[in-house]
Structure formats: structure tokens, C-alpha cells
Simulated assay, not measured.
Amino acid sequence: MYLCGIAPSPFTCDEFNMTLPIMENPLPRKLLLVDDDVTYCTVLAQALTRRGFAVSVANDVNEAIQVIAQNLPTHAVIDLKMPGPSGLTLVAHLKERKPDARIVVLTGYSSIATAVEAVKLGATYYLAKPSDADEIVAAFDHQPGIVEAAITTKPMSVDRLEWEHLQKVLADCGGNVSAAARTLNMHRRTLQRKLQKHPVPERDD
């Protein structure tokens, strides 16, 4: 006779000790940002961090190689034109170390031949500078419908490059001129004056 009419369970305690599946965290997206423009690196690194990347920064190829040796990235954003070895060298080095790395190559001036060479070496996508964080993330994912930045066969003017860079920094600072000036280490009035100047449109001669 059983108390309260409840029969003892036919299962032993051990039979209830079932092993639950272990939920693994997704692999962290480690990103290496390589550009000799320190200000651009700072702003872009902050924007990419907000988008879920663990960002390491290097300002030349040799420094980037050291970072790769210590903390192999899953993603990379590499400027082609820097003092010393070309960014193309770094693309090849990273793909050798990590064949599945996603690499976006950036440059302020370029040629179609250089773009083709970067892709041959393993670059995932090719964007003209200045490119923002959303464009870079989309390039990593290679989403359909994303329009590739135009690749010109001649360099953009220095004034145009500077003006576009200032606009990008201002946008990342939410349109706050004072914050943008601090980020650029520039006097507020100087920044305002530069922003008011529109670069002369590039001519196709």
C-alpha cells in the first residue's frame, strides 16, 4: 500500500541525470583595421566596435603583421596605400595565415588593375575611401544589391579627399561640430571653415 495512493517511480535517480546540450557562444568577430590615417582609424574603429567587432588597429603593414601573429583576426580592413610595404602584401599574408578571413580593401586612389590584384590575392571586396562602417560591414557580408564604390583610374584631389573625410567624421559624431573637431584635433572654427568649402568637382579630361 502506498501513501496517498502514489506508487514509487520506476526510474532511478541516475536516469534523471540527463546531459543537457551545451550552448556554445558564437565565435567572436575579431577585426584588424590597418590604415596610416590615425584619425580615420580612430573614428572607424569606434563605429565598427559599436557594430559588434573586437577591433585591433595598426598603422602600417609591419605593425599589422605583429598583430596577426598575436591575435589572428577573422575580418580585416586594409588600406592599400601606406608608407612602406603595400597593403596588398598584407592581404596575401593574412590569407596565408587564415584562408577564410574576410578582407575589405580600402584606398583613396586606385586603378582597376590594383582592385583586380587585391581580389586575386583573396580580398573579399573593394571600396574607395572614405567608406563608412555600414558600407564595410555590408561588404563583409557581400549582400546582394550593395553597390560597389566607383573605382577611378586617377587619384582624387587632396581637397576632395580631405572634405569627404571631414564629412565622414562629422557624420560619425552625429553632426556635432565640436565633437568632430575634438576627434580631428582641430579648432572648431577651422573645421567649420573647411566644411563650408565644397571641393571642385573632378573633371573627366
Rank of each mutant, 00 (worst) to 15 (best):
E63Y: 09
E63N: 10
A64F: 14
A64Y: 13
A64P: 08
Q66A: 11
Q66G: 06
Q66V: 09
V67C: 07
V67T: 08
A69H: 14
P73R: 13
P73G: 05
T74P: 11
T74A: 10
H75I: 07
H75T: 05
H75W: 13
A76F: 15
I78A: 07
I78K: 10
D79F: 15
D79L: 08
L80R: 11
L80I: 12
K81C: 02
M82S: 01
M82R: 11
P83V: 01
G84S: 02
P85N: 00
P85V: 01
L88P: 03
T89R: 11
L90R: 08
V91S: 04
A92M: 04
A92Y: 07
A92P: 02
H93A: 05
L94W: 05
K95D: 00
E96Y: 11
K98I: 01
P99N: 09
D100V: 09
A101V: 08
R102Q: 01
V104N: 04
V104F: 13
V105C: 06
T107V: 02
G108E: 00
G108I: 07
G108S: 06
Y109I: 00
S111I: 04
I112K: 14
A113M: 08
A113C: 02
A113G: 02
A113H: 12
T114H: 12
A115C: 10
A115Y: 11
E117Y: 14
V119H: 10
K120V: 01
G122D: 01
G122H: 12
A123D: 03
Y125F: 15
Y125Q: 07
L127Q: 12
L127S: 03
L127I: 07
S131R: 14
S131T: 11
D132E: 08
D132K: 15
E135G: 14
I136N: 06
I136Q: 08
V137L: 07
V137D: 00
V137K: 11
A138Q: 11
A139W: 14
A139R: 13
A139G: 04
A139N: 05
A139Y: 14
F140R: 03
F140K: 03
F140Y: 06
F140P: 02
D141Q: 12
Q143V: 12
P144W: 11
G145L: 06
G145E: 00
I146L: 08
I146G: 01
I146Y: 13
V147D: 00
V147R: 15
V147I: 09
E148G: 09
E148L: 10
E148D: 02
A149M: 09
A150E: 06
A150C: 05
A150V: 08
I151N: 06
I151F: 12
I151Q: 07
T152D: 03
K154M: 05
K154Y: 13
